[in-house]
Amino acid sequence: MQLGDYNDLEVAREVDFGVYLSSDDGDLLMPGKYVPAGTQVGDVLRVFVYRDSEDRLIATTLDPLVRVGQFAALSVRDVTPLGAFLDWGLEKDLFLPYRNQRRNLRPGERATVYVFLDETSDRIVASARWEGFLSHEPFPGQPGDAVQLMVAEETDLGFKVLVNGQYQGLLYHNEVFRPLRLGDTPTGYVRLVRPDGKLDISLQKIGYDEARDAVETVLKALHAAGGTLPLSDKSEPDDIYRRLGISKKVFKKALGYLYKNGQVQLAPDHTRLIPES
């Protein structure tokens, strides 16, 4: 049985307050409020297993926000002299020991953590020192690759991001054209693989692919709007992103290409599609 993860366990017996599920570590309780209607002895249920407030193994059909071996940005529910307690979607909060914190936390704020099984106590705990749990292997990709990101921390330079759940990357502030918050999971693109293994990341495709996709996006929007788009190179970045999902920098590149190609007319407050002759 995997503590802090999903397990497929058989219903061993029913009791007034729920059912007991059989496992290699002995029978464990699933409280009645989690038992699916119609469940019978012998059924196999997919459940998440963790420890309750009395350190007993317990099963639930609730889906946690994070499992053992994963990273997540979680909200702080409470802070005590021993550490912080994080909301991870279950009745018992996730413990972040004081020794695993990088700074003092306050209730209501979010923190990026790695969740693991403490070998000494056999308890599921979190660590805000998440960089120590990243892969030490070289990044297997190359510049231009699409990657899955998780926003982990804001710095003076930009945003530290987790890349494919294993590597660390940096999104510089001038590469960010929309609001980001801890835990957001946008798609990104590798701009540079540094000698120390860290990655420079962009939220848009690199080079030719970036410009080509932006041109297609603008043309599609122009056609959908009947030929006139209430955007120009003078428009606010937020307005451009809300309508097109691209940065102002890339939007201006696309406009330049379309204008030189004789496909659009540019005005201070709009862009108009020139009909094909």
Rank of each mutant, 00 (worst) to 15 (best):
M1S: 06
G4E: 08
N7P: 00
L9H: 14
E10L: 04
A12Y: 13
R13D: 00
R13E: 06
V15E: 14
F17H: 15
G18C: 12
G18A: 11
S22Q: 14
S23H: 06
D25K: 15
D25S: 14
K33Y: 11
T39K: 00
Q40H: 01
V41G: 02
V41P: 02
G42M: 01
L45F: 14
F48R: 05
V49W: 06
Y50N: 07
Y50R: 04
D52K: 04
D55C: 01
T60F: 11
V66P: 14
V68K: 02
A72D: 05
A73K: 10
A73C: 09
A73D: 13
V76W: 12
D78Q: 15
G83F: 07
A84G: 13
F85E: 06
L86N: 11
G89K: 09
L90T: 03
L90Y: 02
K92C: 03
P97K: 10
Y98K: 15
R99W: 04
N104R: 15
L105R: 11
L105M: 10
L105Y: 07
R110A: 08
A111H: 06
S121K: 06
I124W: 03
V125T: 13
E131K: 13
G132K: 10
F133Q: 07
F133S: 04
S135I: 14
G141Q: 11
G144K: 01
G144V: 11
V147P: 02
Q148C: 11
L149H: 04
M150N: 05
V151M: 12
L157Y: 14
F159Q: 02
K160L: 14
V161P: 02
Y167T: 10
Y172P: 13
H173L: 10
E175K: 12
F177H: 15
F177R: 12
P179V: 02
R181I: 03
G183Q: 04
D200S: 09
E210W: 01
A211W: 04
A214R: 13
A214V: 09
E216G: 13
T217A: 11
L222G: 11
A225V: 05
T228A: 15
P230G: 06
L231R: 10
S232I: 05
K234L: 11
S235H: 04
I240P: 02
I240E: 01
I240V: 08
S247C: 04
V250E: 00
F251H: 09
K252A: 00
K253N: 09
A254Q: 07
K260A: 09
V264Q: 08
Q265P: 00
Q265N: 14
L266K: 07
A267C: 01
D269N: 10
R272V: 07
L273C: 00
S277N: 08
